[in-house]
Design a protein around this nucleic acid. Sequence first.
DNA 1: CTCGTTTTGTTCTCCCGTTCACAAACTCCT
DNA 2: AGGAGTTTGTGAACGGGAGAACAAAACGAG
Lengths: 224, 224
Amino acid sequence: MTARTPDSARDIPEATVARLPVYLRALISLAEEGITTCSSEELAAFAGVNSAKLRKDLSYLGSYGTRGVGYDVEYLRYQIAREIGVTQDWPVVIVGIGNLGHALANYSGFRSRGFRVVALLDADPDRHEEVVAGLEVRSFEDLESIVAEHDVSIGVIATPAVAAQSVADRMVATGITSILNFAPTVLSVPDGVGVRKVDLSIELQILAYHEQRKSVAPGAGAVS
Amino acid sequence: MTARTPDSARDIPEATVARLPVYLRALISLAEEGITTCSSEELAAFAGVNSAKLRKDLSYLGSYGTRGVGYDVEYLRYQIAREIGVTQDWPVVIVGIGNLGHALANYSGFRSRGFRVVALLDADPDRHEEVVAGLEVRSFEDLESIVAEHDVSIGVIATPAVAAQSVADRMVATGITSILNFAPTVLSVPDGVGVRKVDLSIELQILAYHEQRKSVAPGAGAVS
DNA sequence: CTCGTTTTGTTCTCCCGTTCACAAACTCCT
DNA sequence: AGGAGTTTGTGAACGGGAGAACAAAACGAG
Ligand SMILES: NC(=O)c1ccc[n+]([C@@H]2O[C@H](COP(=O)([O-])OP(=O)(O)OC[C@H]3O[C@@H](n4cnc5c(N)ncnc54)[C@H](O)[C@@H]3O)[C@@H](O)[C@H]2O)c1
Ligand SMILES: NC(=O)c1ccc[n+]([C@@H]2O[C@H](COP(=O)([O-])OP(=O)(O)OC[C@H]3O[C@@H](n4cnc5c(N)ncnc54)[C@H](O)[C@@H]3O)[C@@H](O)[C@H]2O)c1
């Protein structure tokens, strides 16, 4: 029993936070295969990272391993899930039910990882009352009441880029404090509101850059 | 005329490469608004980054600005596009035409940024001959011939996680050297093959982590 | 032509993240 | 019980990126 705070560890580095979900996924896979214990080496290989990095990452959460033995899969799985916050259920709203919005609404990976889609919203009246994945598409005007009713703090934006900022503003006004943005635009939000973006075109352009490099300078390395 | 190589700059940092597409998008927006010149301050604000960082990033490409004036929007746009490699057309294949694959196939942002979807492939015979976004869904067995015919080097994986590794192996075997993976799995590929992943669940879990933090420790900062 | 203003390109410093390397801690075997 | 073998947790070195600050360069006014 050291001076470490026993319950919740302080200030986990951002890079580590981004990898914890990967470890969690790896642990779930191992548990499904009936494996009850694993070493940092094995888990690291499964997660595609260096074992030293894995151990350092896990050390920010506490000392959950046993020297000479390794980690208990189920125990570590729970500890990471608790640290990330996915032991509870997070209600989520999706705004913009077009091509991408439909795919997101139908994505089962949401639910299995602690996120529950409580509403699908779209500005286009023609889309209203359409039922997608068991949920009726509702008017964007209903945002306030839905957020209040389900205590939603996470919103997903899948509208065209031109609408994204105004949707974000409206989300923030209703009390949403975390936004996942699929529209190719930089969102500006007040301090305290978290934004993450997913931009498919940027990913492809990064691949294209390295691809172009390969053809002129053979032997150039891979992409992280 | 310094000792700098005039044509293609060497070893651009990875962090810079990831931001160049953002600058490119900002420049395109500015050009569409009829703006012909902009300062690093303006462009940085548009791209959501620090102006010093922007200037440093651009300096890796060369000296394309004019001191006391700023950057010529059209000229800089072309230089970045050339550096990334999106002045040419990149043929792309998408494998796994389910919920997500449909959305990707219908996404117009591909084409407008220099990527051309040349084929949609799926292992399920029931999906074959369905026409999505003007392209017929074809058998996964056709991968070799399609890659050879169109000289494809970039592949997108939108299959379930269990199939992703085998699809990746097959892609690599046919000569594809860049993969964009949407399946929640770590892919292992040979050196020289670039892989980037997009994992929606991870993004949500990162948001959830910070969200949980906010509720216990108010005043905690935003997410990058 | 000269001076003041503007803005880039670059240098310098600091911080975060990665990786190595090893002592501490635990198990198992004799 | 003790020693050999294994594996974690972490201190320390290292590398890369972020941001501040400034010198160099271009432009315009007078
Ligand atoms: N389709 C893809 O695969 C893909 C991939 C990457 C990024 N994106 C981005 O995701 C976004 C959505 O893409 P999409 O293909 O689904 O477009 P889409 O046009 O099919 O769908 C957009 C939907 O948003 C709705 N909408 C428009 N303005 C709105 C507003 N102010 N409030 C609420 N809803 C509004 C529209 O009615 C429409 O249903 C775009 O920004 C696109 O660039 C799409
Ligand atoms: N739907 C989403 O919004 C979403 C979001 C994030 C991640 N993902 C991930 O993207 C992937 C696809 O999701 P989805 O919702 O489109 O699933 P889906 O089940 O709707 O589609 C998967 C498609 O892949 C095809 N397929 C299966 N095995 C194949 C193989 N070996 N070769 C070629 N094709 C094969 C199937 O026939 C099916 O058409 C999954 O890994 C999912 O976890 C989806």
